[in-house]
Design a binder for these strands. Sequence first.
RNA 1: UCCCCGUUAGCUCAAUGGCAGAGCGUUCGGCUGUUAACCGAAAUGUUGGUAGUUCGAAUCUACCACGGGGAGCCA
Length: 463
Amino acid sequence: MLGPGGYVRDILAMPVGSSVGISGWVKTRRDSKGIHFAQVNDGSCMQDLQLVIDDGVLTAETLALVTTGASVTATGELVASPGAGQSVELKVTGLAVHGGADTVAYPLQKKGHTMEFLRDIAHLRSRSNTFGAVFRVRNAVSYAIHRFFQERGFIYVHTPVITASDCEGAGAMFGVTTLDMQNVPRTQSGAIDFSQDFFGKPAYLTVSGQLEAEIFALAFSNVYTFGPTFRAENSNTPRHLAEFWMVEPEMAFCDLAGDMRLAEDFLKYVIRYVLDTCLADIEFFTKRIDPTVLGTLEHVASVDFEHVTYTEAVDILERAGRNWEFPVEWGCDLQAEHERFLTEETFKRPVIVTDYPKQIKAFYMRANDDGKTVRAMDVLAPRIGEIIGGSQREERHDVLQARIMEQGLDLEPYWWYLDLRRFGSVPHAGFGLGVERILMYLTGMKNIRDVIPFPRTPGSAEF
RNA sequence: UCCCCGUUAGCUCAAUGGCAGAGCGUUCGGCUGUUAACCGAAAUGUUGGUAGUUCGAAUCUACCACGGGGAGCCA
């Protein structure tokens, strides 16, 4: 096992003359008269370590196995490199090949591949430059998320993945069952008899940890959940997954203004952390994926987000003099084209839209005194649209109960959610952020399937 | 789920009703402290599947599968 100090990233920073050992996968192999070169990468950083192998150091049999894709351990001396691509290189004195890779069959070649092709070989794409960078950034983002909330005293709560409350209304859910699908038990009326199922009632994969996070917020003040969530929607777009990771903070004694402040601080913190720790990867994305990435991130990390109410946003859109594909009028939800106009043309920065009409938002959002709008906020980012959705929650028992009934929902499943408003209720607020959405923003990757290791989408669950 | 586009060598793509092609990769040879090198040669195909039109289909038609873009749903 490699340990601290033994990764390529560490070795590249060592002084010339160091005696080192290195393990990794051969990216390319080149030969010259009497000398052989192999680029080795272990995933620790963008840069490879160049092995220099003089004729006679290895047997012909071993040397023949040092091909693209092979796994090797090499020992030798770190020397200054006369070549252009690197400052140091490893002058090899010994090398072992763990696993060879048939050059004819190995699908990764030196030249660029399309993302679609690489997605089909997701078991190998993580060895490519692009996906190495993507998943290093994904790791950094995950760590930054925990650091941000931990530094602020938030308690990390593990909300359940399986839920029996079909009450979140955030989208279609995946069923979880142990019933025999060939022979489903029926009640006398012909309905599926879930009393015989594992949980004694219908169960699902969660679409959000928010409602459970609220339970914890009303005990620990500030909490966050961070885990996988599931949507069974038949969404076929570059921005949707059936399984994705979501961060959901929930804060007691907090209103919408505090919620928005936290959301903005949070986004800037994550961006700044990635710029500080993954700059080589971000520079790679800027060079190879999207030339605007680095500039955009530096801009967003330093600029104040714009704030507009939904009503103001509709006013701006109505006066824009555009022929909208979806006409704008107060009460309709903002479409992708509207969000783009606000972020990319009107303000040219992230925009927080607040106080949406209550008809187009969820029942748990706190009603405003105007009787028409709720304390909701969406953070819209240039290029990818909605990146965060949040709200102040309705903390008044009677108002919440009326809202649930108004939306035609059963009160019974919400008994515990309503109970929170009977015992020590308090103004509270929170938001949700899709980790893959912010990764698209950070990397410039165009398809959400390329920022999660093993994407699950309608009709596709390979690997 | 809807609209549009696509599917030809390992990869990226040509060939628009008449002999299946190129570049890259791979293999072999040459040259070279190389960096997505360069020069020469070779191997590589059930043209996504099924059915149809036609003397003849990669090419036209229908259906299906898969992929991409846009939309809806949303994070």
